[in-house]
Amino acid sequence: MNIKGRTMAKKVLLVDDDPDILVLNQTVVEENGFEPVTAENGEQGLALARSEKPDAIVLDILMPRQSGIKMYRALKLDDGLKDIPVVVLSGIARKSFLKSQDILSGNDGRQVPEPDIYLEKPVSPAMLADAIRKVLAGK
């Protein structure tokens, strides 16, 4: 690993409605030398994405009131935010999920790209750490 330090740490925004998962993922991010920022729903997540300018976002896409899906589409349709890599966490298999939720085309027909990484829950600490490192390296 290269130089560790608060100022150098990359910022990772974690969005999940399950507080247990949020605490766990927060620890994973810290243990891997990044700085976590957490949000419990999509609205809060989007506000933090704007104010905190994270280097990567880990988003639970299956949250109540579709707030995960809405946040994902809002990120990708916002010129200031669309380049932040997103790791999507989901309880459903990737293929059926993308098909059933109209996540990519939405109601307004505006196409958004697929998430950089899609992980099926439950996600182990090692898997999450790998995914975050991968999207940060690809940036």
Partner: peptide, 29 residues
């Protein structure tokens, strides 16, 4: 199993850092 593993992961991290708050979080999980 995932919940238990996650809890142990947090506990390990907490013990290593002597972080009491994290210890509580992990234990609650």
């Amino acid at each position: 199993l995932h919940g238990l593993e996650g809890g142990s992961y947090i506990l390990d991290a907490a013990i290593k850092r002597k972080d009491y708050e994290k210890l509580t979080n992990g234990w609650r999980l």
